[in-house]
């Protein structure tokens, strides 16, 4: 989906979906700590960072045009908004890739609900990898852990120094 969309913001939202999918597959193979850190780090960190990057580096002229269009729209009544919404929805439906994606999703969900009789397996002593990972991180891989911390600090300071805008102090 990121391949087919031209809008950068839409790319970011499709990326959110794929990150969630990756986190779900981590859960399926039993790497629960990695799934949680995937959600926290990628969706909470990287995606927000990417959105900030898009906002900071988007062209100002097109943004102004869009803002003008928005403010013109706001002058009209609520009815206009409803019509606009339906137009947008129609446009969304008519695009072939959206039809493909939602058709696939619907077909898969119908198949799953037909095939599966959902039954709850009694969980016997659910094992988490959190304890194991914590112990191993601070004993065997302690050097790498410290190096990762130092790397993050260096990156933080470098980015701050690099993007510093000179502020004239009176």
């Amino acid at each position: 989906m990121i391949l087919f969309t031209e809008n950068v913001i839409h790319c970011a939202f499709w990326l959110l979906l794929s990150f969630l999918g990756v986190a779900g597959s981590y859960v399926l193979v039993g790497a629960d700590f990695l799934a949680v850190s995937q959600i926290v780090v990628y969706i909470g960190g990287v995606l927000i960072l990417l959105l900030f990057g898009i906002m900071l580096t988007s062209n100002l002229e097109t943004e102004k045009r869009q803002n003008n269009a928005l403010s013109q729209n706001e002058n009209f009544s609520l009815k206009f908004f409803v019509i606009l919404f339906f137009k947008k929805a129609f446009y969304f439906i008519t695009k072939i890739e959206n039809i493909l994606a939602f058709g696939l999703l619907g077909w898969l969900s119908v198949k799953i609900f037909e095939e599966k009789k959902w039954q709850i397996i009694p969980q016997v002593n659910p094992q988490t990898t959190l304890h194991n990972i914590g112990i191993r991180l601070l004993t065997e891989h302690f050097l790498a852990f410290e190096l990762a911390g130092i790397l993050l600090l260096v990156v933080l300071v470098c980015v701050l120094v690099f993007t510093k805008i000179k502020i004239s102090v009176k």
Partner: peptide, 18 residues
């Protein structure tokens, strides 16, 4: 986990450059 950390650092630096 370490790959994840390095990826975050790399994306932060790239966005700063951008």
């Amino acid at each position: 986990l370490f790959v994840m950390i390095v990826a975050v650092a790399e994306s932060a630096v790239a966005l700063a450059i951008m």
